[in-house]
């Protein structure tokens, strides 16, 4: 039995401790945000926050988050409404297919928590490890900068 906080709620789950966090979030705990992209920490689609830090959930064993606090895309919403950052992604239409969006938003949130006023190039550097195939990069950067500006 492993216990941790998921989006501010206590969860206890009885699955093998070596199961990837991503699989547990998706298949046992009903999380949609984090997505399987590569299973190798290479693309960032599965990013979640653990104690506020961005983590590739595909390459993280469940046991590593025991007693910690996990935040997914769903957990960023406020009363079911998009957060400032999420709303900025909507306002900037920062997606084509949108499959990478959850990982982008999580990674960007971690950046803004550390640096509330990043420059264009700081946003890009922070997101370089997150892959987008559709070419929505500039929209995504605009969305992050917009969220920063709107504080």
């Amino acid at each position: 039995m492993i216990a941790f906080k998921l989006n501010e709620k206590d969860v206890r789950i009885d699955v093998p401790a070596t199961a990837p966090l991503l699989a547990v979030l998706s298949n046992d705990l009903g999380i949609n945000g984090a997505k399987f992209g590569c299973g190798k920490s290479q693309c960032g689609a599965c990013a979640v926050l653990v104690d506020g830090e961005p983590v590739r959930s595909c390459a993280t064993q469940l046991s590593a988050v025991s007693g910690r606090s996990v935040t997914t895309l769903e957990g960023l919403t406020q009363n079911g409404k998009p957060s400032k950052l999420q709303q900025a992604f909507i306002d900037e239409q920062a997606a084509q297919c949108g499959y990478c969006a959850s990982g982008m938003i999580i990674q960007a949130q971690a950046l803004l928590d550390r640096n509330p006023n990043p420059s264009d190039s700081e946003v890009r550097t922070a997101l370089n490890g997150n892959l987008c195939r559709c070419g929505a990069h500039n929209r995504i950067v605009r969305a992050v900068l917009r969220a920063a500006k709107e504080g």
Partner: peptide, 10 residues
Amino acid sequence: IPAKMIGEVA
């Protein structure tokens, strides 16, 4: 797009 940004099934 909105559903994809807040983690609804898409």
